[in-house]
Simulated scan of single mutants.
Amino acid sequence: MDDLTALRELHDDVPQLTDDARAAARVRLQRAVLQERRPHALSRRLMLRATVAGTAAAAVAGGIVVAVGRDGGTDASRMTPLSAERLLRTAASRSRSSETGLRIPRDDQYLYTKTYITRTYVKGKRTKTWTDQSWMSVDGRKPSWREEYGKVHHDPPLGKHEVRWPPTEYAELAKWPTDPDKLLDVLRMADKDSPTAGRMAFVNACMLMMGPRVMPPGLEAATFEAVAKLPGIKLDHHDVDALGRHGIGVSYPKVSFSFVFDPKTYAYLGLRLKGSSPEKIDGAWRQTHWYYEMRGLQESGVVDRIGQLP
């Protein structure tokens, strides 16, 4: 028996890798390649510079390059770049795998979320932080208690003809399609051939992820897969989420929002946005005091009353 035959038979006894395992393996491979290339005589500072320079070059070329075979193995002859589409599809697979035992809320319950927000102003690098908690009525028929940048809002029940966009009521979200193509049509809110349809879809996807973070099964994954179909999405390799965790962002041209994912597991970390505060100058309101803001979900769940924790 030759070595190749033995290797094939050994592979047959190994179970298929999960998407999370493959993602982790790719990261370990990338680190191993960088480590192997480092001359042992170089100083630690010089090695750090070389690694940063190599990572930046890979980002400019279109993404971090890893070797991935069809079966999840590695092969130097098959080099696949990490694209925004690939990241989103992996994040979708991870989202589906984490939905086991997902609790379906009753209409009389509340959706609890705890969000950490950090805002860093471009001028002066001054930083402000908030930890917001919210209890949103599942069906919208009871008052809700919501914090926004530390300020408490007592939201009355929705009126008979009132609607929110995107919906916050679980039953309304449950009506949304989990087929990525159909969901993309919903997110576009316009003819798919419109020049602004892609931008509209990306913004609505961000707004959906900013809402109650207890979603019907498959909706979060379908959102990532729908966004993956948008031409023009790109990776931002140096994002940092609200909790200080380094991440990889996915953005769209001329949109101030971007999704942020864990660079190792591709778990969804939160949203990053660029904004400004208005200021009245010479009798006219102008957008000044530009800042970058990160919103990271710390906790979410279903509870029976306002003030209760999951």
Rank of each mutant, 00 (worst) to 15 (best):
A32D: 10
V227Q: 08
H11V: 08
L48I: 02
S93M: 06
D107V: 06
S300H: 11
Y266K: 01
V214C: 05
G211A: 07
K229P: 03
V68W: 03
S43T: 14
G54D: 15
M1F: 06
P216Y: 05
P310A: 02
L29S: 09
G211I: 02
E279P: 01
L235V: 13
K125V: 02
S194T: 11
H161T: 09
T288N: 03
Q287A: 09
A41Q: 10
Y149A: 15
Q287E: 12
S251F: 07
G307S: 13
V66A: 08
H161C: 00
H238F: 12
E148F: 10
A21L: 08
R141F: 07
T223D: 00
Y149C: 13
E169I: 00
K274S: 14
V33Y: 03
R103E: 09
E162M: 13
L102I: 12
A284G: 03
I281N: 04
D71P: 01
W130G: 09
M47G: 15
R141L: 15
R164P: 01
G198L: 05
R245W: 05
T127H: 07
P166H: 14
M79A: 07
A226L: 05
D179E: 11
R26S: 08
A174E: 06
T90E: 14
A226M: 08
T168E: 14
D241I: 02
L29V: 01
E85Q: 14
A242Y: 12
P166T: 11
T129L: 02
G218T: 02
P156D: 04
